[in-house]
Design a protein around this nucleic acid. Structure first.
Lengths: 213, 213
DNA sequence: ACCTTAATCGACAGTGCGTCAACTAACAAG
DNA sequence: CTTGTTAGTTGACGCACTGTCGATTAAGGT
């Protein structure tokens, strides 16, 4: 059966034990390897070797390769979410142009963790767990945006007809996520990133209807 | 080494030989299996069994699993491209709303081949060949759209400032492709599809600037 | 009848995965 | 300090799947 049983990692919870060192070493080793090998071509054996543990030991900490990436990716996702929440919580920063600040934050964080984010996005189709993590955060971002759109509509700043705020937010978020994904895959330079932020900002504003240029 | 050598399929070209039957059988078997098993969980052995050939024989026709999907997916992509080219070649159909007809065609064809398209999109990260095929067609669609956008701008129907027509087309195409991808993954109903078409149509028009609502 | 090329298959070796049972290290309680 | 418990470690094992090779048979033309 290819169903991986849960690793014993679940049990290890409370105290900061010796094994935490190892866990961190495995994570670090993976990060390092990811710098010059695509995640899909990485084997458990390689990671274990790089972290200087036996392959079996690695299974003590992680049930499989995907779980490692999941932890790595979750960190990034949380950083991103924190940034967006901060932005969302501060009305003063909601000024025009519509959402440049948050888009810029997402692009910056994604670029800083390009290998991990790229790997996660690539594994999305192959690994349900990664996909669930991504979907969860994606959906949260969508609802947040939908809320803002509705606020704009209520204030008469955006037209209320047509598709629902949620549908618009969802589609525009797809645009955002996958434009970033492409940027990462092409090793996007800083200027490419800047151009993308500009484009996305304009398209969000137009899509929401705030910018009837 | 895991580098698959090219299958002997390359050699077989001109005449309609006996083996074409088998090739078709393999393709059909894959299509059938795809109806209730995700492609990633499908093995060469299963496909061979379903097509009633030995595993080794299958390798006579296809170098690996990905090549099978590639053929299947290429058919769909070509159907889609043909439809878009037809639309693009006929100026009479370029009427408002901006691109509903072409979006609708894409959604319809994707839905009709949901299993294949879904599988291909999911494999994108894992398989460079699939990715190249997709990217090629994606890029073509982007240039086509950019051309139309420039036409609108030249006619004064769309604002010329801001991001380039290409950048806009690219971002909106990401939105379109991945919204469709999500629709397929959730087994999107006909009404979901209709709502999506509506949303995308509006967002293309707003994004291009044709609809300054 | 013959020869070339298409097609088929069984057997093989390789790779990576996840599991297991046995072993050692840490460390608390008596 | 010895004894028991839990954390951590490992090599060896079996499994599933992959891709290749060489031998063998079927087609189809001349």
């Amino acid at each position: 059966m290819s169903t991986p049983t849960t690793s014993r990692r679940g049990q290890r919870e409370a105290k900061p034990r010796q094994g935490d060192r190892r866990e961190a070493a495995i994570l670090d080793a993976t990060r390092a390897l990811l710098a010059d090998t695509p995640f899909s071509e990485l084997t458990i054996g390689q990671i274990a070797a790089a972290a200087e543990v036996s392959r079996s030991s690695l299974y003590f900490y992680f049930a499989n390769k995907a779980q490692i990436l999941l932890v790595l990716y979750t960190e990034v996702l949380e950083e991103m979410t924190a940034e967006l929440e901060r932005w969302f919580a501060d009305p003063a920063r909601h000024a025009e142009p519509w959402s440049r600040a948050s888009i810029e934050a997402a692009v910056t964080i994604a670029r800083r963790n390009a290998n991990i984010v790229g790997a996660a996005l690539d594994s999305r189709g192959a690994d349900p767990e990664i996909d669930r993590a991504l979907t969860t955060h994606f959906d949260r971002a969508v609802s947040r945006s939908a809320l803002l759109i509705e606020r704009e509509r209520a204030a008469g700043l955006a037209p209320a007809g047509g598709p629902t705020a949620l549908a618009i937010a969802r589609a525009l978020m797809h645009m955002t996520l996958n434009s970033i994904h492409e940027l990462l895959r092409c090793g996007g330079s800083a200027s490419d990133a800047a151009e993308l932020v500009e484009t996305l900002t304009v398209l969000w504003a137009r899509g929401v209807g705030t910018d009837p240029a």
